[in-house]
Structure formats: structure tokens, C-alpha cells
Design a protein around this nucleic acid. Structure first.
Length: 463
RNA sequence: GUGGGAGUAGCUCAACUGGCAGAGCAUCGGACUGUGGCUCCGACGGUUGCGGGUUCGAUUCCCGUCUCCCACCCCA
């Protein structure tokens, strides 16, 4: 049997109804804040992510699905080559080696022409690429959202898949459009709080930090390395490794014995320059004013290199180790890193799979499925046509209609209607067709009446 | 990538120390030819994840492999 490959999965009814429910709510809320949809390709040039997300991040270093666009060409080459060698190996070896060298050189040349492509591991790089490519800065401030699959080659576990879905939103524009204003940070965070509340997810926690600008971070990293040097030998193996490779990550450590040491380390908050400090203070002031609760966490660090200043995470208890339901922040230098104009921005990514997980306790998928209003049951040879005509009329009145088959015995039609969760069953038998009035039965109350064709839709709608 | 747990019917799970692979639910048919949910009877459903080994005999023991779950790592 051919199965879905590791880390991917099928989303089936009725669960898909919950996904649609979430996405409808998202679109509704985003519209109120004047966000508009953007759809970018699912694969991009590898270089985009290398430069945008950062060569040294885990995502780029070991989690991307990357291939050469002409991989098939190469395998064809290899097969031909083997065949040729098989033929020629009968002659002198020197000639064979010579032949191999010339073919290898040809492959190297072709490989240079093949483009390295990558399935997108996140959305922001592609959106900023589109912003630069289409000069969206000329429109002023852009408020964009994107819903779609992302791909990372990690070991799957609860709430983590190799193909997973993100709901992204970005506010980006030239500095003159106010894209770097703390007002935008405040608006985005308030929108998220509104969205989660709207979905009925109340027990979320917003953790907020400022990671400063590039200069701040360089100074901070330096100070951190110096502070870790004398104490790192007393820390856990992971921290000893982090102290060298990525000192910021030491703050992620959960080992209890290390906490007293971590508590003494310098914090990014002490290294923010004046503009960054003011920006952060302004964001917090707005949140307080609009009544969005948050907790400051100067240990919050993000895994992508492009983040500057505001960084945040919404967590939820019911998700196990993957407790981050969404994360985001400001990325003021990203456009320039990709060769574009200055275009400060702030955005976030919601892990839709995890959002659904945390929703499922309170909102089962069945509760958002729209059940049929009526099951139309043809009865006896030659009634399928009349039943189809009635179903067509009722569907035009925006009713959800399930249609049976004339070969079903009436008992079977009733069972099918009950299983489908229909509210009514409409019997279309010889008696009804002759009379021009149809038997309509409420499956919950058992009430059964005869209704003329013209009044059916109204009767069903009014319950 | 590392460590631990688990894979038996569509679903939830049994099967003693190695001895004919089962039940409930679901599905289909009948009791009941135009009235569902309840009941009763019957049927369908399996290469026990896959591949090898030990054995007279393997769901059971051993090895390999795949997938899922949990944790690490990291992140959404």
C-alpha cells in the first residue's frame, strides 16, 4: 500500500470543517484590520532562504527540502555514462579513464546551469521577495496575509509535521509609510489577541521582548560570550555547546541546575540603544492602553536571523513540548539583506496545525460542520428525475440538500438521512408525484406533513 | 540527527509460558416490498506494519527496517 510519506498527513472530514472555520475567522478578523491576501510560490530559489532566514539557522543548515531543478537530467547522464563505460571497459583502461574525465567535466558544466530550489520553510522571505520584485513599496504601507503549507525536514512529533500550515501576516513598507512605527507593532499584537479570543482560545500567554538592532546584538553577543567563558564548564552539555556556537540560545535552557547561572548573565535589555529602548517602551504603552495583557521576557530569543527589536510568542498549555502557537517580530533589515530598498516590517506566523490542536478540546469538528437541511428520498422506479428537480430547486434557496436513489427501500433512505444528520426527509414517491405534494418529515420530532412543491423551501427553512 | 514507547479487521482493543487470530462498534443483508433511531438473526471484513531468523509450529522470541507517539534538539 502506498502511504502518505513521513511527516505529512491527510486532513479528512469532519476535521477539514474546523480548518475552514479557523480560516474563515482569520479572514474575517484580518479584513477588519485592512489586511489583504498574497499568494507566493511554494518553492523559491534556495538563495532566498539562505540570505533571508540566515545560513547559520537550523532551518537553513539542516531542515530544508532542496533539490537541483535538473536532477532528472543528471540521473539520465549517470545511466548513459554507466552504459558507455560498460562498453568501453573492454579496451585499454587509460582510454576509459580519459573518457570518464571528459564526461565528469560535462556534468560539472551542466550542474552550474541547474538552479537550486527549495520548498519554502517559512513565508516571510517569499513575501519580502515579492515586495521587492513588484516594487510594492510604491503603494505605501502593505498589510498582507498568506495562508498555506510550509516544509521543514524535522523529526515529526505532536504538533510538528514536515508539511505544516501557517497563517502569516506582514506589515511592510518604506519608512515614510510609518512601517517602523511602534503603532504597527501594537496593532499587530492587538489583532492577534482579538483573533485568539474570537476563536475561543482564552488561556494564551503573550511573551514579549526586544532583541534590539544589529549593533545592539553584536555588543550583546560579545558580552554574553565573555560572561559565559568562566562559568560554562559548570553548565549542561547543551549549554557548553551553545556558548560557543550561538550564545543567545543559552536562554532557551530548561535544566534547573543551570538557572542560577543564567540568571546572572547579561540581558539584551541592558544593551538596547536609546531609539530601540524608546520603541519598545512605546509598544508596551500601546498594549497597556488597549488592554492586551503580556509578560515581558528578556530571555525570549527567536530562531531566525532577521528579527530586530520587537519579538514575541503566544504560548498555550495544551500543546506539550511544542507550546508555541504563534511567533513573530520585527525585521527592519530583511529587505536590504535581500537586495531591496529599506522596508521595515513586522509580522507573525501562526502554526495552524497547533492552533487547531488547542481548539479541538473546546470546539469539536462536528460542531462546525453544516449538516443537510433535507434528505431528498426518491422512492420507486422513475422517481430519480423528479427528486433531482426538487433538490435543484431547494439548493437554489441556499439549502443543504442530500439526494438519495430510487433503488433504496424507504427504510434505507431513512437510515441514510439519519446518518447524514439531515433535519428533514422529503419523500418523492409515486403518490407524491401524482398529487404534486410531497411528504416532509422532521426526523427529530417525527412530525410528518404533506407540502406543495412551491412551499417546500419556505417550510424547510422556517423549521 | 539522538533516546524511550507502540504497531493485530474501517475504529477501539483481546489472544496464558510459543499451539486453529477473536470481541464490541461500524458496514452490508434479512426479520420488515411506503417510514429511521431500538431489538433479533446472518454475512463481509486479516499476508498480526514490512523483511529475515530460531522452531514441528511465531501475533508471541531474536535481528533488521518502516511508520506513529513521547522527549531531546529546534521551532509554528
Amino acid at each position: 500500500m502506498i502511504k502518505a510519506i513521513r511527516g505529512t498527513r491527510d486532513l479528512l472530514p469532519p476535521d477539514t470543517a474546523l480548518w475552514n472555520f479557523v480560516e474563515a475567522a482569520v479572514r474575517d478578523v484580518f479584513r477588519a484590520y485592512n489586511f489583504q491576501e498574497i499568494r507566493t510560490p511554494i518553492f523559491e530559489a534556495t538563495e532566498l532562504f539562505a540570505r533571508g532566514v540566515g545560513e547559520e539557522t537550523d532551518i537553513v543548515a539542516k531542515e530544508m527540502y532542496t533539490w537541483h531543478d535538473q536532477a532528472r537530467l543528471f540521473s539520465d547522464w549517470a545511466l548513459e555514462l554507466l552504459e558507455d563505460v560498460r562498453e568501453k571497459v573492454g579496451g585499454s583502461h587509460e582510454k576509459t579513464l580519459e573518457y570518464l574525465s571528459s564526461q565528469q567535466a560535462q556534468i560539472e558544466t551542466d550542474k552550474g546551469k541547474a538552479q537550486s530550489l527549495t520548498l519554502r520553510p517559512e513565508a516571510t522571505a517569499g513575501i519580502v521577495r515579492a515586495y521587492i520584485e513588484h516594487k510594492l513599496g510604491d503603494r505605501g504601507l502593505n498589510k498582507l496575509f498568506l495562508i498555506g503549507p510550509m516544509f521543514r525536514r524535522e523529526r515529526p512529533q505532536k504538533g510538528r509535521y514536515r508539511q505544516f500550515y501557517q497563517i502569516n501576516a506582514e506589515v511592510i513598507g518604506p519608512p515614510s509609510s510609518g512601517s517602523d512605527s511602534p503603532a504597527r507593532d501594537g496593532e499587530v499584537l492587538e489583532m492577534l489577541a482579538t483573533l485568539l479570543d474570537r476563536l475561543g482560545i482564552t488561556d494564551w500567554n503573550l511573551e514579549l521582548n526586544s532583541v534590539g538592532c544589529a549593533n545592539d546584538r553584536a555588543k550583546f553577543n560579545e558580552a554574553l560570550r565573555n560572561a559565559l567563558e568562566p562559568v560554562k564548564d559548570k553548565m549542561c552539555a547543551d549549554c557548553q555547546r551553545r556558548a560557543v556556537t550561538n550564545p543567545l540560545r543559552v536562554f532557551d535552557c530548561k535544566v534547573p541546575e543551570d538557572q542560577p547561572i543564567i540568571a546572572t548573565l547579561p540581558r539584551i535589555s541592558q544593551f538596547l540603544d536609546e531609539p530601540c529602548r524608546e520603541h519598545f517602551a512605546a509598544v508596551k504603552e500601546i498594549l497597556t492602553k488597549v488592554g492586551v495583557r503580556f509578560s515581558e521576557n528578556d530571555r525570549l530569543v527567536r530562531g531566525l536571523d532577521y528579527y530586530t527589536r520587537t519579538a514575541f510568542e503566544f504560548t498555550h498549555g495544551a500543546l506539550g513540548a511544542q507550546n508555541a502557537i504563534l511567533g513573530g517580530g520585527r525585521y527592519d533589515g530583511l529587505s536590504e539583506a535581500l537586495g531591496g530598498p529599506p522596508a521595515p516590517g513586522i509580522g507573525f506566523a501562526i502554526g495552524e496545525d497547533r492552533l487547531i490542536l488547542s481548539l479541538q478540546e473546546k470546539t469539536p469538528a462536528e460542531s462546525v460542520v453544516r449538516k443537510p437541511d433535507v434528505y431528498v428520498a426518491p422512492l420507486g422506479a422513475g422517481t430519480n428525475g423528479e427528486a433531482a428537480r426538487l433538490a435543484r430547486e431547494l439548493r437554489r434557496h441556499d439549502l443543504v440538500v442530500e439526494l438519495g436513489d430510487e433503488n433504496f427501500r424507504l427504510k434505507k433512505s431513512f437510515e441514510a438521512a439519519t446518518r447524514a444528520g439531515a433535519k428533514y426527509i422529503l419523500i418523492v414517491g409515486e403518490n407524491e408525484v401524482n398529487a404534486g405534494a410531497f411528504t416532509l418529515k422532521n426526523l427529530a420530532t417525527g412530525e410528518q406533513i404533506s407540502v406543495a412543491r412551491g412551499e417546500l423551501a419556505q417550510k424547510i427553512k422556517n423549521g
